[in-house]
Simulated assay, not measured.
Amino acid sequence: MRKIIMHRTGGPEVLELIEAPAPQAAPGHVVVEAEAIGVGWPDILIRRGIYRWMPPLPTSPGSDLAGHVIDVGEGVDSALIGSPVLVTARELPVRGGCYAEQIAVPVDALFRLPTHVALDAAVCLPNYQVAWNLLHEAPRGQPVQSVFIRGIAGGVGSALAQLAKSAGMKVFGSVSSEQKAAFAHQIGADHTINYTTENVADRVLALTGGQGVDLAVDHIGGPDLPDLLRMLGRWGLLVSYNASGGMPEKNLLAALRENGVRCPAVRIFEMHVYDDDRVNRRRTMQSVIDLLASGEIKPMISDRLELADAGRAHAMVEAGHGLGKVVLVPSLDRGKA
């Protein structure tokens, strides 16, 4: 059984492919054989050693895996064998562990999947779970008819676009190229703004006749974050779910006061708000599983790489050039389920 392991933190070169003993199903556990493994920012933060919920070294990064149950432990119904399932580290006691051909997990951590669902699409669902929360939970009941998505062509960004369009929202998004703009329109964007050539807030305001949007969603932060407040409409909300570009240089409270006539608000969102709320954590995941099963959403996969290429997959995500989700498969021949 092959897996990726890291003995130290650093760049993609610390990810090492090894042969390891096959996991055994302890009582109350199952063994899942991977068909598709998601690559995302939590994996990269683990590799860099800066993840707040860092697992102890040595470790295998990887937060999401889809496959089939191949063994069950004592106390688990053997009828589960052969079932398609999704494993996400959000349901596990320790983050990471999914960059492996097989993994043993508690049976109550599994999400059962319909048999007709493609597993490489299912492994994208944790991105959709984040997106669902950003659109439907973070506003806390405030009506949202329009949304701006910073980085709409990425894994979470493309999930946001599809879910927003499914909910009947008008969708605006920022891109860095014509290729990404075309992709964004394909997945539901009504308007795209190239942030390399235009002021994004000015353009959103122009496109909305000065009214602005109800919701702006950001994962970058950085010096441009306060400017996003200008594009918000009355009672508009800016939700930050990451800060890959660092903290804003400008005083955020001062920026809020400058736009006070529209009563804007800022909220931080992290999936860890559900760490001690299993019921709602699983509810939001089941919501997007149901949408995938019905065909309402179609996860977009940027690239499929073999497990041995995990380092290259990390470099691709960090560069931000992909369109959708980067997925690892045990082998490219098997990763077509």
Rank of each mutant, 00 (worst) to 15 (best):
R2S: 04
M6T: 04
R8H: 14
G11T: 14
E16R: 15
G40R: 04
I44M: 07
I46D: 02
R47H: 05
R52E: 11
W53F: 12
T59I: 07
G62A: 10
G62Q: 06
L65P: 00
G67P: 02
V69R: 01
L80I: 06
V85Y: 02
V87Q: 08
V87E: 10
V105I: 08
A109T: 08
P114D: 14
H116M: 03
A118V: 05
A121C: 05
C124W: 00
P126F: 03
N127G: 06
W132R: 01
E137D: 12
R140F: 04
Q145N: 15
Q145F: 05
V147Q: 00
V147R: 00
F148D: 00
A161H: 00
G168T: 06
K170D: 08
G173F: 01
S174D: 09
A181F: 03
I187G: 05
N199L: 09
A201Y: 09
V204T: 06
G210N: 06
G212H: 04
G221N: 11
G221V: 02
D224W: 09
L225N: 01
R230Q: 12
S240R: 10
N259P: 12
P264C: 12
V266D: 09
I268A: 15
E270R: 10
D275F: 10
D276W: 08
V279Y: 06
V279H: 12
N280W: 11
D290H: 12
K298H: 15
K298T: 13
E306I: 08
L307I: 10
H314F: 14
H321F: 04
G322R: 00
L323W: 03
K325Y: 02
V326T: 15
D333C: 04
D333N: 07
D333Q: 13
R334G: 04
